[in-house]
């Protein structure tokens, strides 16, 4: 009798936890399938290559795709080098007792937990209001607003900051996998510290740097909250021509179309298709990052 109870209880525990696990898998499949099914008929070359028409009830999403690409590109140009150099500092230059290093590590950890929307606030308060106003004052006596308003540059820089911890941590992890032996070999040959970093450490962490970059890009591509009020535009038929332009953006477009479009029901196909494009892009980015990271980690094991 007791044994039977134990057996029943046991299968209940295993069954329940298994069910929980597979419900997650099921949800992932359902969400993806819904979006794929809903969006696949609307996706066409035309959809990807033309701007929206007729009050965004028809046409494509080209400006949104370009806007996202530009934002991500500027973000990477600004953020990845800073992240890589900071990681180099942490792993190669900072001593074990370095206060600066400890402060940076603490700050990076804090930064990683800050909600995305707070980054948006910062972007507004710092870049737009503080730096932007300053630039206007310097460049044009502050008479007309040029930089002191949301634009592509500020949105990208805000995002660069948001993704900074991702870059720093994954590059540092990659740098740590470079065997100490190789550094020793280089130093013993009379190479200086910087020569060793440049010729040995960095080339051998290239995969990790790439992974960090891709992870940052994929995180940045999926994040909408920080650009809500630092540069994203509701509708702009033309592509952004300068850093001080506002821009359309894929994730923001999904949000706008689903909540504020003039006719939510008529554009449901466009909404699904836009979401599908966004999902596909982030999916591919994540996939390549995971692939590269597993390669870095397998080297670590060796």
């Amino acid at each position: 009798m007791k044994r039977l109870r134990r057996k029943v209880l046991g299968s209940a525990v295993v069954g329940l936890s298994g069910a929980a696990a597979f419900s997650i898998v099921a949800v992932v499949i359902v969400v993806m399938a819904t979006i794929v099914v809903g969006g696949k008929d609307t996706i066409s070359w035309e959809f990807l290559s033309t701007p929206p028409r007729e009050g965004m009830t028809a046409g494509g999403i080209l400006p949104a795709i370009v806007g996202m690409a530009l934002r991500v590109l500027i973000m990477s140009i600004a953020g990845v080098p800073v992240g890589v150099i900071t990681a180099v500092y942490l792993s190669e230059y900072a001593g074990a007792q370095s206060r600066l290093a400890r402060a940076i590590r603490f700050a990076v950890n804090t930064l990683a937990g800050v909600p995305a929307i707070v980054f948006g606030l910062f972007g507004l308060g710092f870049f737009v209001q503080f730096v932007g106003s300053g630039m206007d004052t310097l460049l044009s006596d502050g008479t007309d607003l040029h930089w002191a308003q949301p634009n592509l540059l500020w949105a990208s820089l805000t995002m660069a900051l948001l993704t900074l911890p991702v870059v720093i941590v994954s590059v540092e992890e990659a740098i740590k996998t470079v065997p100490q032996d190789l550094r020793a070999a280089s130093l013993a040959l009379g190479a200086t510290k910087w020569q060793t970093i440049w010729h040995v450490v960095l080339p051998n962490s290239l995969t990790g740097i790439l992974t960090g970059g891709i992870l940052a890009v994929s995180r940045g591509a999926g994040e909408v909250a920080p650009i809500l009020f630092t540069g994203a535009a509701y509708f702009l038929p033309r592509l952004p021509g300068s850093l001080s332009d506002q821009f359309m953006e894929l994730g923001y477009h999904v949000y706008i179309m689903a909540t504020q479009s003039t006719n939510v029901d008529a554009t449901i196909g466009i909404q699904y298709a836009t979401t599908l494009v966004l999902l596909t892009i982030t999916f591919m980015l994540n996939f390549s990052a995971i692939f590269l990271r597993s390669r870095v980690r397998s080297r670590q094991m060796r």
Partner: peptide, 8 residues
């Protein structure tokens, strides 16, 4: 170190 070789 330039004047001293090292084998590990």
């Amino acid at each position: 170190r330039k004047r001293i070789g090292m084998i590990f």
